Simulated scan of single mutants.
Amino acid sequence: MSILTGYIDVDWAGSPFDRRSTSGYSILVGGNLVSWKSKKQSLVARCSAEAEYRATVVATCELVWIKQLLRELKFGETSHMELVCDNQTTLHITSNLVFHERTKLIEIDCHFVREKLFSGDIVTTFVKSSEQLADIFTESLTDPRINYICNKLRTYDLYALD
């Protein structure tokens, strides 16, 4: 049984030129990093929750795809998928059945993620920003923070001198 875990983070309105956000995620299978991505969002988000939610949708699609790939490769059953986020508003939007006027723009994405949430395919979890592993894809970090995240993601520099 393997556990799929996705960490998501967003640098809301981080681009000084067009105020678009940068999304980042990392996907781990059994604690091992197998997929990651950092990309500027195509639309300007009006609030941090909207930007985080857009990243949630992309990461959810990746989790579902990896789960299907593992099943087709007969790698073993995936016990559950977990999406880890440091934005409580985003987690509330995910599980709240009532749409608010401010979330109409992302209503279709909400239906997709909620479908996966309510079917039990995925669970969402809050993580403190200090434990957010996807920061490495969206933030300017200091060396100690980079080393901390790389150790948690089990990534190593193959060319580093021992």
Score class of each variant (00 low, 15 high):
residue 87 N to G: 02
residue 110 C to Q: 05
residue 100 H to W: 09
residue 61 C to G: 07
residue 155 T to I: 15
residue 57 V to G: 02
residue 68 Q to M: 10
residue 142 T to I: 10
residue 149 I to G: 03
residue 43 L to W: 11
residue 107 E to N: 12
residue 142 T to C: 13
residue 49 A to M: 10
residue 134 A to G: 04
residue 15 S to L: 02
residue 147 N to P: 00
residue 37 K to H: 07
residue 129 S to L: 08
residue 23 S to V: 02
residue 150 C to T: 10
residue 96 N to K: 01
residue 153 L to Q: 07
residue 152 K to F: 06
residue 2 S to I: 07
residue 128 K to C: 14
residue 138 T to P: 01
residue 118 F to M: 14
residue 39 K to P: 01
residue 53 Y to C: 06
residue 5 T to K: 15
residue 14 G to K: 01
residue 93 I to Y: 09
residue 61 C to E: 04
residue 144 P to F: 01
residue 134 A to S: 05
residue 85 C to Q: 06
residue 30 G to Y: 04
residue 44 V to M: 07
residue 97 L to G: 14
residue 84 V to K: 03
residue 53 Y to F: 15
residue 152 K to I: 09
residue 67 K to G: 11
residue 148 Y to R: 04
residue 26 S to W: 10
residue 101 E to H: 15
residue 39 K to C: 04
residue 92 H to L: 08
residue 144 P to R: 03
residue 49 A to H: 03
residue 161 L to P: 12
residue 41 Q to Y: 01
residue 15 S to F: 00
residue 74 K to Q: 13
residue 33 L to W: 10
residue 130 S to P: 02
residue 96 N to M: 05
residue 108 I to D: 14
residue 144 P to A: 03
residue 13 A to Y: 00
residue 92 H to A: 12
residue 29 V to T: 13
residue 1 M to D: 09
residue 117 L to A: 11
residue 83 L to F: 03
residue 97 L to S: 11
residue 54 R to F: 03
residue 145 R to V: 13
residue 104 K to D: 05
residue 70 L to A: 03
residue 50 E to K: 06
residue 71 R to A: 14
residue 77 E to D: 09
residue 66 I to A: 01
residue 116 K to S: 11
residue 18 D to T: 04
residue 78 T to P: 03
residue 42 S to K: 13
residue 45 A to F: 07
residue 37 K to V: 02
residue 49 A to F: 03
residue 102 R to P: 08
residue 32 N to A: 14
residue 158 L to A: 13
residue 48 S to N: 13
residue 12 W to G: 03
residue 147 N to D: 11
residue 89 T to W: 08
residue 4 L to A: 04
residue 119 S to M: 12
residue 81 M to F: 00
residue 139 E to N: 10
residue 23 S to C: 09
residue 74 K to E: 15
residue 157 D to I: 06
residue 3 I to A: 08
residue 46 R to G: 10
residue 105 L to S: 13
residue 88 Q to T: 14
residue 80 H to I: 11
residue 82 E to C: 12
residue 70 L to I: 01
residue 55 A to G: 12
residue 18 D to P: 04
residue 2 S to P: 10
residue 149 I to K: 00
residue 46 R to H: 13
residue 149 I to Y: 01
residue 135 D to C: 01
residue 11 D to A: 05
residue 133 L to Y: 05
residue 50 E to C: 06
residue 152 K to N: 14
residue 6 G to H: 08
residue 154 R to N: 14
residue 53 Y to K: 06
residue 123 V to K: 14
residue 59 A to M: 11
residue 61 C to W: 02
residue 52 E to T: 13
residue 97 L to W: 10
residue 113 V to S: 02
residue 93 I to N: 00
residue 138 T to L: 02
residue 1 M to W: 12
residue 155 T to R: 14
residue 73 L to K: 04
